[in-house]
């Protein structure tokens, strides 16, 4: 029984790590700040939840579990606040998102000379 829980927990941790990698890939590939925030929130919600759940399964009962819950709760409370502060600051500084359909891997190079550059250093 404990052995089975150990394997399930390990699998969840691995899934969380995979989700973190996917989030990082998204952050690298998406074209502007706002879309990158979406990719980063993959790690903050899905990745963190899966990993902490996995750690909860392999941990002994007791305070370790409560602390894992605390870490999870803290990440879930702070990550939207940080994401909102980031998006709000970028928007307030005049960085405008790209609107409309386009291919990520098309001729529009990620991080190229899109409108996302217009806000660089204008927050004075």
């Amino acid at each position: 029984m404990a052995e089975a829980l150990h394997w399930i927990g390990g699998a969840l941790i691995l899934a969380g790590a995979l989700l973190s990698i996917l989030g990082a890939v998204g952050v690298l590939r998406f074209p502007d700040v706002y879309t990158r925030i979406h990719a980063a929130s993959l790690t903050d919600t899905g990745g963190a939840t899966l990993m902490l759940l996995g750690m909860g399964l392999i941990s002994p009962l007791g305070f370790v579990m409560l602390k894992l819950l605390l870490v999870w709760g803290f990440i879930m409370l702070t990550s939207p606040a940080a994401a909102n502060a980031l998006a709000n600051a970028a928007f307030g500084a005049g960085v405008r998102p790209r609107i409309g359909t386009f291919q990520i891997m098309g001729e529009d190079k990620p991080g190229g000379s899109g409108p996302e550059r217009s806000g660089e250093g204008t927050a004075s």
Binding site: Y34, I37, H38, S41, G46, P80, N84, N88
Partner: peptide, 13 residues
Amino acid sequence: NSITLTPGTVTVD
């Protein structure tokens, strides 16, 4: 915060 927490949507203002 719920909107921001769900991936794919972010509250800007």
